[in-house]
Amino acid sequence: MSRLLKRCAQGVRVNIVPGLVLQSIACVVVGVYYFVPEARGAYDWIAKVKVDYGYWYSAVTTGVFGGLVPFLYLVSVGKVERSDFWAVGIFFLGAWSWKGIEIDFLYRMQAILFGSDNQALTVLKKVLFDQFVFCPVWSAPVTALLYRWKDCGFSWRRFKRELDRDFFLLEVLGVLVAIWVVWIPGTAFIYSMPSSLQLPLFQLVLCFFVLLVSVIGKKRVDKVLAES
């Protein structure tokens, strides 16, 4: 129990400052949309592209923001070994392209379930469903598993050794706490936007969040491997 509480506290401590930065970015984007009419044209153009291309837009742009940009950053700072270049690059692009389709579907279904307006009650329902149903049941476990597999060098043997009780109790919970710290306020901003602009705002915050998960996750695995 003490290890569990320690991991939760660590997740909050590590993510609180980056989370505040990401939430500030989201706040500025939302504020500009509602209070700077001169900028509305750019938002409308993005919304039109999103509507015109549907899930293709979701896959390609999320692959770029959540996959390609963070991957290129990690390469530039030496966090990706030359021998792993293609494997890690394909992983980032493939995982986050699919994630874009998944999140777009989530947003569309919530619009059907709870409505597409930006009233406080509607936003609250979407945030609660997103963070306390979708994330614990699907998003956090799958993200933790995918990134652990990547950090194990895509070795199924090493990956299977990592799937012990501590992984599911501590690592998955650690990812979930990281998600909550960043995304509970973040999704409130996202769901306050029109439906066609929710995914683009998600992608902007996502780009920085993936960098955070990648760097922190790699450090944890390197520490475990060094001690083994």
Rank of each mutant, 00 (worst) to 15 (best):
K50I: 05
P70A: 10
Y73T: 09
W56Y: 11
V60P: 04
S58M: 14
A59K: 03
F71W: 06
L74D: 11
F65N: 03
F71N: 01
L72W: 06
A59Q: 07
W45L: 14
W56V: 15
A47C: 07
S76W: 10
V51G: 10
K48A: 15
L74I: 00
K50W: 09
D52Y: 00
D52I: 00
V80R: 06
A47W: 05
D44I: 09
V51E: 15
V49Q: 03
F65S: 05
F65C: 09
P70W: 03
G78E: 02
V75A: 05
K79L: 14
L68K: 05
P70V: 10
V51F: 05
V60E: 02
F71V: 05
T62I: 05
V75E: 07
L68Y: 09
Y55I: 07
Y55T: 06
V49N: 00
V75Y: 01
Y53G: 02
V51H: 07
Y57D: 04
V77Y: 06
Y57K: 02
L74W: 01
D44N: 14
S76R: 13
T62R: 03
D52K: 02
K48H: 12
S76I: 08
S58V: 13
G78T: 01
V60L: 06
G66A: 08
S76Y: 11
L72M: 09
K79E: 15
V51N: 11
I46N: 03
G54T: 03
V60Q: 02
W56M: 11
V64C: 12
V60C: 00
V75H: 00
T61D: 08
G63P: 15
W45T: 14
K50T: 12
G63I: 13
K50L: 06
T62P: 07
Y53Q: 01
L72R: 06
Y73I: 13
V80W: 07
P70N: 08
S76C: 12
G67A: 04
F71Q: 04
T61R: 06
S58D: 15
T62K: 00
G66Y: 00
S76T: 14
A47V: 07
K79W: 12
V77I: 15
G67K: 03
V49A: 02
G63N: 13
K50G: 08
V64L: 14
G66K: 00
K48G: 14
V51A: 10
L72E: 05
K79S: 14
K48D: 15
G78D: 02
G66S: 11
L74Q: 09
Y57A: 06
F65Y: 09
V64Y: 08
K79M: 14
F65I: 05
V49F: 01
Y53K: 00
Y73W: 13
V49T: 04
P70H: 07
W56P: 09
D52W: 01
V49C: 04
K48I: 08
F71C: 05
V60Y: 01
V80G: 13
F65T: 08
W56S: 15
T61A: 10
D52R: 01
V51D: 14
Y73G: 11
L74A: 10
L68F: 12
K79V: 10
K79R: 14
V64D: 13
L72A: 09
A47D: 03
V69C: 06
L74K: 03
D44W: 11
